[in-house]
């Protein structure tokens, strides 16, 4: 009875926690980028203010049913993926193969966005979505090969089993034996997070924030929440596979560290063209991850 109570409490508490942490991540990102640029920067809770403001907007342009369903679909797709990713060694649904399910669920969000943007009929949004899907084709390969080498190493496709296999301190993390796969996944993560040099789908200076171009008011607020969850989930994959999970506090510390590295790269890099980004993913990270997979297969 007590265990079920904790489980229900966790179901309610966890998404709220993830959203607040994600928004604080985004605020910290702006602060850190500002410090790198030698500026003072906004307060760390700035993105929470932004979300309150966006939801208090009086009117928002609507272009049709699909336009409002798109952000909801993206948001709920990510909410479902939260069920499969262990946060602080606690997963709601854990079974053999949940890594694969999670990687599939991550694709729902861009597709939801694509449907919404299609209704908006703005050429900028269409370009942005085309770029997002192209970029996804690039990094998804690297992501899956890296995840595959971890699965091969442990002989399991369950997040909880992989975390268990890494228990026992820093020396047991898969970061060390599977260094090449971890490196490739971190490269791919830069694209997953949409940080520079892989922010072609957003690109405010060329295509006016891409998919978000027609969204305003509460729709944009929903997309901000979606972005907040997405960052936690995406860095969480790296934390669970290579950095050994950890208690709630240490899990978020590790996840923020992964995000922090991406941020530092983001703050000093310009943007690739989409073709260059695609070519990059299918050459160096793909080669490194394949090498990692072969090494695992030989050593195992």
């Amino acid at each position: 009875m007590n265990a079920i109570g904790i489980q229900i409490g966790w179901i309610i508490f966890m998404p709220i926690l993830v959203i607040i942490m994600g928004l604080l991540y985004l605020g910290a990102a702006r602060k850190i980028t500002a410090r790198v640029h030698n500026r003072y920067g906004p307060p760390i809770y700035q993105n929470i203010i932004d979300v309150i403001k966006l939801f208090s907007k009086k009117r928002a342009t609507n272009h049709g049913v699909m336009f409002s369903l798109g952000p909801i679909m993206a948001f709920s797709g990510l909410l479902i993926s939260l069920m499969f990713i262990p946060i602080g060694n606690r997963a709601l649904l854990s079974f053999n193969g949940d890594i694969i399910v999670l990687l599939y669920l991550l694709v729902i969000a861009p597709l939801g966005m694509a449907l919404g943007v299609g209704e908006g009929a703005n050429p900028m949004g269409t370009i942005g979505i085309a770029r997002a899907l192209t970029l996804m084709l690039g990094y998804e390969v690297v992501l899956i090969i890296s995840a595959l080498s971890v699965m091969l190493y442990t002989g399991s496709a369950s997040f909880m089993k992989i975390i268990e296999a890494q228990s026992g301190g820093v020396g047991h993390w898969f970061l060390w034996p599977l260094f090449l796969s971890a490196l490739a996944m971190d490269m791919a993560l830069q694209g997953v997070l949409g940080e520079k040099p892989f922010d072609q789908p957003i690109a405010p200076h060329e295509i006016a924030s891409g998919p978000m171009v027609e969204f305003g008011g509460k729709y944009l607020g929903l997309l901000q929440l979606y972005h907040a969850i997405a960052i936690v989930v995406e860095t969480g994959i790296m934390v669970n596979l290579f950095l050994g999970g950890g208690t709630l506090f240490w899990w978020f510390v590790k996840s923020f560290t992964v995000f922090f590295i991406a941020l530092l790269i983001n703050a000093v890099m310009p943007r690739f063209r989409i073709g260059q980004a695609f070519k990059f993913f299918w050459t160096y990270p793909a080669a490194i991850s394949l090498l990692g997979l072969i090494l695992v297969a030989i050593l195992k």
């Binding site: 702006r30 500002a34 500026r39 003072y40 920067g41 906004p42 307060p43 700035q46 203010i49 932004d50 342009t61 900028m124 405010p204 200076h205 006016a208 924030s209 978000m212 171009v213 027609e214 969204f215 305003g216 944009l220």
Partner: peptide
């Protein structure tokens, strides 16, 4: 002068 410390950021489209 850094106006982002007041939360003011440039946005690309009128909708936002």
């Amino acid at each position: 002068y850094d106006m982002e410390r007041f939360g003011i950021t440039p946005m690309a489209t009128p909708r936002q």
